[in-house]
Write a protein that binds this DNA or RNA. Structure first.
Length: 392
RNA sequence: UGACCCGUGGUGUAAUUGGCAACACAACUGAUUUUGGUUCAGUAGAGUCCAAGUUCGAGCCUUGGCGGGUCAA
């Protein structure tokens, strides 16, 4: 029996996680965290944290677990939301939920949880944890959830050994339908609740509206780059000397194409984006293939096969590298194959990672669509998440 | 100034050469998704530049305007 704090969110997953731990006879405390009060840009008028808290409390009561609430909104604002604005401002596309896990759930929240004298902190994430011994040291492994459709290990790709040592993921061995079934059988109030989506805790917001709190709209040009132009530019051999050309965003220039419309601010767009351009009349849809916040230009290409949408590799600077498995960190000059994904719910892709002095180059076996600065690349070895980093 | 061509939903095109307007893109809504995005489904939107005429019936034919373009002087 251990003393465990379980983070109840008001959703099914964490409820079932709590139930399972209770079944195993652990000494539980439920802790609900408030991360966001404001409702600017909210789409659903209802559904604020109060409702989630109420339901979480009902779950705790049903399971006969003491229930507490902790307000981490200050931290969340400072460590997640501000980061988000700053990233968009500088033309990158952040992943707030990865940060939320690293900075809040498994840091601020973890700290609060440990004040309850807990040995471990449990969440409803779909991922698994194991440990191995190596050179007499215990190493925690973060594995994908059993349900391939719900695996959330990607969102935890920035956790470190210390954080993992305290973490517990009780639903990681279950499939989502099984979790629902358990909730139904146990009559948990969350059994039929819809899965949360959108930026965690902020909720489902209209992102442009949300961003406009901080980012000022500014009219700029939309430039269409012909597919032929990029085809020519991409005729480069994938050799080490060319890494710097193929592993970074293509430096589009205004004269690489033609002005076909206007936008309200380059920092509101991301690579691969189709909706929101407000430009019609093409036989195939237009996709954003590049943004330039300094010149305030967005570059687009016609058709989902446009060469500007694909890249064979990416780069992660050394200071942005994170190894969950510190012991597997590559040395300068070393090359190794991993399975990599560059966004949530994307099939893993074979890639060679090549560590250099300034950072690591990741060369995919097949070109990847929509590689975006600011997003996280996460590399796996089979089911195990080995490390991650911010795409340059 | 003369000749010729064109004028259809927000945009780009289509309509068996007379029978009440289709497709794509955009937009909107929903589904999927604990980031952004992607993807999927559905909805709405023009009575065809204007005026007059031929016809049972015109976006398609005729005439005159208006607007845009090409060629010739």
């Amino acid at each position: 029996m251990k003393r465990i704090v379980v983070g109840l969110s008001g959703g099914v997953d964490s409820s079932v996680a709590a139930y399972l731990l209770k079944q195993q006879g652990h000494d539980l405390v439920a802790l609900f965290m408030v991360n966001w009060h404001e409702r600017v840009g909210n789409i659903t008028s209802a559904c604020t944290w109060e409702e989630d808290a109420l339901i979480a409390k009902m779950v705790a009561k049903k399971l006969d677990i003491p229930f507490h609430i902790v307000d981490l909104s200050k931290d969340y604002k400072k460590r997640v939301v501000d980061y988000m604005f700053a990233e968009y401002q500088s033309g990158r596309t952040p992943n707030p939920d990865v940060l939320c896990n690293r900075e809040i759930k498994f840091d601020s929240f973890l700290e609060e949880a440990l004040k309850f004298d807990a040995d471990l902190v449990a969440t409803g994430h779909y991922c698994r944890k194991t440990e191995i011994k190596k050179d007499g040291k215990t190493i925690h492994q973060l594995l994908a959830g059993k349900d391939p459709n719900k695996d959330q290990s990607y969102f935890l790709c920035q956790l470190n050994q210390k954080q993992l040592s305290k973490a517990l993921f009780p639903v990681g061995d279950l499939l989502k339908p099984e979790v629902r079934d358990i909730a139904r059988k146990m009559n948990l109030p969350t059994a039929e609740r819809k899965d949360s989506q959108g930026i965690c805790f902020v909720g489902k917001v209209d992102l442009p509206t949300f961003l406009q709190q901080k980012l000022i709209p500014k009219t700029g040009n939309v430039i269409e780059v012909p597919a032929k132009f990029m085809e020519r530019k991409k005729q480069i051999e994938l050799t080490e000397e060319n890494y710097s050309k193929i592993c970074f965003p293509f430096p589009y220039k205004p004269w690489n194409g033609e002005v076909i419309g206007e936008h309200q601010g380059a920092h509101f767009y991301t690579i691969g984006q189709r909706k929101g351009l407000n430009i019609g009349g093409y036989s195939e849809p237009l996709f954003v293939i590049g943004t330039d916040v300094h010149r305030n230009i967005i570059y687009v290409g016609e058709g989902k096969k446009h060469p500007g949408l694909y890249r064979p590799g990416l780069f992660i600077a050394t200071e942005e590298m994170h190894w969950i498995r510190e012991d597997l960190q590559l040395k300068v000059g070393e090359k190794k194959e991993f399975d990599v994904r560059i966004r949530y719910r994307q099939p893993l892709e074979k890639a060679i990672m090549h560590q250099t002095k300034g950072g690591v180059y990741i060369l995919f076996k097949d070109e990847q669509r929509g590689i975006t600065s600011g997003q996280f690349a996460a590399w796996y070895s089979g089911e195990e998440l080995i490390g991650s980093g911010v795409i340059a």
